[in-house]
């Protein structure tokens, strides 16, 4: 059976777990799937603000687990992206409020109602990560091409494999083609060779991501952005389609972007 509950994790903080969860979730929903994104970073709620749903939260994950509300009451439906729902993290509690077996039960309940469930894991390798991992079928590891992030990604891959969740898939975020061309940044072949897991996608360094978060709008709704296209392709790969990786261009000019998008279609 194909995986449908994925934990999005990285070990190191700040590499783009939340961004990936938000935009990949939106990309899957735009392709017609029913998707739930869960913010498992209890105490540090932020998936809601990236998605622009921060003003619509009534209940949260901890309320559901403690039985204070029904799951359906806590899920926030995105009105712009049909099929996308958010289960927000609790802001006033800590990671200890959720135990792995509770998370597993929650994921199993969501599994019944959705095509995909993406769990945004907190950084670190402690309890919060363990809980986020508990209900998942498999993991998507996010890294950037920086030494600290790659080292932590390797550690996380080891922990995911030890938890018998299979070999994770890799997303390399914030690839800067200008630096790669100069030999001042690890490229995708380097990172894949080092980590030795399947590459699921590459995301270019893109100012559209910053604007999207500022506005609280999934970048995949922006048809012109290269990062949006990158997330849409990852969504297609999860669906089993064989899609080429985006062509990173060192010049982010309009014609280059257009060229890379046309050549890929």
């Amino acid at each position: 059976m194909a995986s449908k509950v994925f934990v999005i994790t990285s070990g190191k903080g700040g590499v783009g777990k939340t961004t990936t969860t938000a935009h990949l979730g939106a990309a899957l929903a735009l392709s017609g799937k029913k998707v739930a994104v869960i913010d498992a970073d209890i105490g540090l709620r932020n998936l809601d603000i990236v998605l622009g749903l921060e003003n619509r939260i009534v209940y949260d994950l901890v309320n559901v687990i403690e039985g204070a509300c029904k799951l359906s009451q806590a899920l926030v439906r995105d009105k712009r992206v049909e099929g996308l729902s958010l289960l927000p993290a609790s802001q006033s509690r800590t990671k200890e409020a959720v135990q792995p077996e509770q998370m597993k039960a929650l994921c199993d309940e969501l599994r019944e109602q959705f095509d995909y469930v993406l769990v945004d894991s907190p950084a670190g390798i402690e309890g919060g990560f363990r809980s986020a991992l508990a209900g998942a079928d498999s993991a998507i590891v996010v890294t950037t091409p920086h030494v600290a992030a790659v080292r932590d990604a390797d550690r996380i891959i080891g922990l995911v494999e030890a938890a018998e969740k299979g070999s994770p898939q890799l997303i390399i975020n914030r690839m800067d083609m200008n630096l790669i061309k100069k030999g001042e940044m690890l490229d995708q072949e380097d990172v894949v060779e080092i980590l030795a897991i399947r590459l699921l996608g590459i995301i270019p360094e893109d100012s559209a991501i910053v604007s999207a978060s500022n506005k609280g709008e999934p970048v995949v709704m922006n048809g012109k952005s290269l990062s949006g296209e990158a997330y849409r392709r990852i969504a297609r790969r999860l669906e089993g389609e064989d899609v080429p990786f985006i062509e990173l261009s060192s010049d982010s000019g309009f014609f280059n972007r257009l060229k890379s998008m046309i050549s890929s279609n």
């Binding site: 080292r151 390797d154 550690r155 080891g158 100069k182 030999g183 690890l186």
Partner: peptide, 28 residues
Amino acid sequence: MAWFFNSKKTSKESAKKRLQLVLMHDRA
């Protein structure tokens, strides 16, 4: 390809070598 003609090692090469070594120790 610019670094190809440059005898100076690029920082990416050091990054890769250092990572491969440290991960060997981490993994074991």
